[in-house]
Design a protein around this nucleic acid. Structure first.
Length: 606
RNA sequence: GCCCUGGUAGUGUAGCGGCCUAUCAUGAAGCCCUGUCGAGGCUUCGACUCGGGUUCAAAUCCCGACCAGGGCGCCA
């Protein structure tokens, strides 16, 4: 080892020891002869000091020469004696702040060019633009925060792995060069050299492989699986991502949900040393949509929507009547007076803020937003005269309105209105600080349909994917098949979907039936899924599982703005890897070898 | 494919028609300083993304491109 201790290690218990530290020079200070260096590694930082009056090294001139050549982020090894700090010069913020190393020898292990942005923690955030951080990702990773993020991710995976192994799960790797399918997202294709004109696809998930592992008798499988989907990025989505993928045989839905819950409880204990309440609440999809306006609800604050369509039917309020006549709906959020922070409480949310909300609602594609305020005398607002007293009372009762509460109504086509209401909830929660101090909350979203209508084609598509086993193992005949429900479940954390799974079809006849409802004829089934349908023919056990997004999970638990902060080498919005410049053009010869011809516009002149 | 936001020294920012020979901080280079710890003091260096246009005058307004991010679509 080039060092005897790491930089977060030394304390008063080490006084008098002769030690060698190695690390990066984060700061240095020259007091006209007395030189201070903060030597940092991934464990911490330790102050090393050169004191010409105290140092007894043989060759002071050489040592001073070395020390004076050192710049920021130089990699150095210093050897010296651990000593107590001078009275009043300890640094209580640093675990090693009570001691320092008196430098007796120093060596520059490597130099550094002036760094393009700050690696050291600064008081005022000077975090550079993301493109620069990506380009010099190795420097970005040297930052304490990024180092901690990667460490957290590693511990989370390690903890989950230990739990699953203790439960008898087997970690199995599945191929990265896989069969392309027309289902799902766009594939990343890889040309085959040995079979010109043929292509592999990078896996969108290990779905079919893990099901075949169940047929293969693995019974309990998991994998930290890299997945690839060639669809546009978001803050919580990039084209290559990591799933904690698992699958179990001879289980029903509750077995899988319970296993996942116990896994997170175990992880929580190890990572946060806190109990995680299990089981997680379950909410039916239709309730999630009507109360939270999304299939991934954040249930940590109130502000649930209450539909009042039936009540306002009796009110001659033109805007609502127009919406109702078109088959639309009216929903209401009660902004409780008790939710307002003290500084806002006296005037509740004023007219000006309501006006701003109305403008915001228009930006969400709504016609506007209607409001009423609850007073001791009942509901009041500029339009309350259009609402008969009985209607007002019924609305107040359904929304549990108390004096001071503000009722916000959205009216319009069902889907868009619920969606806007869901956005309104989140906006209010943000604006009013309702999430401050709130912990994390998992919730299962269950009772999803098997199919949904594709608005473009009018045909049926899978709600989740085609391998979901229907509730009761029954799909109604004819047009009624669209009403079939699936034995599937989504895991949601704080309003983000972090996992999705189901029981699978192990009966090949049922799997064929699903394919055929999705519009696949026998020939297509044969072409795309013959191998899989055949596998099911050979004694496939009942099975099911789940895949959970590790990037998203880590980002949420760490409070990161984007998953890029928990991925060592992420892609930018155009899928470029700025640190190494991928993707690149390749030589003509490489294409020829693969029997490929590029049709991209030739910009070689540039 | 579409919508929104933003591009000012190495980095982070201020300025948003004339007070701009562009602010401040940090950095880099140099000097001073024997107990600091984001050390301090002094000196120096260093920028308006690009191309059109409007105007007597553009970092500032308009149009277009490019770059980055956020979102819609997409993500079985």
């Amino acid at each position: 080892m080039l060092r005897t201790h790491h930089c977060g290690q030394l304390t008063k218990g080490d006084l008098g020891k002769r030690v060698t530290l190695a690390g990066w020079v984060r700061f240095y200070r020259d007091h006209g002869g007395v030189l201070f260096y903060d030597i940092a590694d991934s464990h911490g930082s330790t102050q090393a000091v050169f004191d010409p009056e105290a140092t007894t090294s043989g060759d002071l001139d050489r040592l001073e020469g070395v020390l004076n050549s050192i710049g920021r982020e130089y990699v150095v090894a210093v050897t010296g004696t651990v000593r107590d700090r001078v009275e009043g010069t300890t640094d209580p913020r640093n675990p090693t702040g009570e001691i320092e190393v008196l430098i007796e020898d120093a060596e520059v292990l490597n130099r550094s060019k002036p760094i393009p942005f700050e690696v050291a923690e600064q008081k005022n955030s000077m975090l550079p633009g993301e493109d620069l951080r990506m380009r010099y990702r190795y420097l970005d990773l040297r930052r304490k925060e990024m180092n901690a993020n990667l460490r957290f991710r590693s511990r989370l995976i390690s903890s989950a792995r230990r739990f699953l192994e203790s439960e008898g799960f087997m970690e199995v790797e599945t191929p990265m060069l896989t069969r392309s399918s027309r289902e799902g997202a766009r594939d990343f294709l890889v040309p085959s050299r040995t079979m010109p004109g043929h292509f592999y696809a990078l896996p969108q998930s290990p779905q079919l492989y893990k099901q075949m592992l169940m047929v293969g008798g693995v019974e309990r499988y998991f994998q930290i699986a890299r997945c690839f989907r060639d669809e546009d990025s978001r803050a919580d989505r990039q084209p290559e991502f990591t799933q904690l993928d698992l699958e179990m045989s001879f289980v029903d839905m509750d077995d899988i949900l319970s296993m996942v819950e116990r896994m997170y409880a175990f992880v929580w204990k190890e990572l946060f040393n806190e109990p995680l309440p299990i089981p997680f609440p379950r909410i039916e999809l239709k309730d999630a949509l009507s109360k939270y306006g999304t299939d991934a609800p954040d249930v940590r604050f109130g502000l649930e929507m209450e539909e009042v369509t039936d009540l306002v039917r009796a009110a001659p309020y033109e805007i609502f009547q127009k919406v109702l006549s078109k088959g639309g709906m009216v929903t209401c959020i009660n902004l409780k007076a008790s939710m307002l922070r003290e500084q806002d409480a006296d005037g509740a949310v004023g007219r000006k803020q309501v006006d701003r909300l109305i403008e915001w609602a228009k930006g969400q594609g709504m016609g506007g937003l209607t409001w009423m305020r609850m007073t001791p005398e009942g509901l009041s607002s500029n339009i309350v005269k259009y609402f008969p007293v009985e209607v007002r009372k019924a609305i107040a009762a359904r929304t549990a309105a108390e004096p001071g509460d503000l009722l916000l109504f959205l009216a319009g086509p069902r889907e868009g209105t619920l969606k806007a209401g869901g956005q309104l909830r989140l906006k209010l929660a943000r604006d009013l600080g309702l999430l401050e101090g709130k912990g994390h909350q998992f919730v299962w979203v269950v009772s999803c349909p098997l199919f949904q209508r594709d608005p473009a084609t009018g045909g049926l598509t899978s709600f989740h994917h085609p391998f979901v086993r229907p509730v009761g193992d029954v799909i109604p005949e004819g047009k009624e098949c669209a009403t079939a429900m699936g034995r599937s479940y989504d895991l949601v954390l704080d309003g983000s979907e972090i996992g999705s799974g189901s029981l699978r079809n192990h009966d090949p006849a049922m799997q064929r039936r699903v394919f055929s409802i999705l519009g696949m004829d026998e020939a297509t089934m044969q072409r795309e899924f013959d191998f899989f349908l055949e596998a099911l023919e050979y004694g496939a056990p009942p099975h099911g599982g789940i895949g959970m997004g590790i990037d998203r999970l880590c980002a949420m638990l760490l409070g990161c703005e984007s998953i890029r902060d928990v991925i060592a080498f992420p892609k930018n919005k155009k899928f470029q890897s700025l640190v190494d410049g991928a993707p690149t053009k390749v030589e003509e010869a490489k294409l020829s070898e693969l029997q490929l011809l590029s049709l991209a516009e030739d910009d070689d002149g540039a």
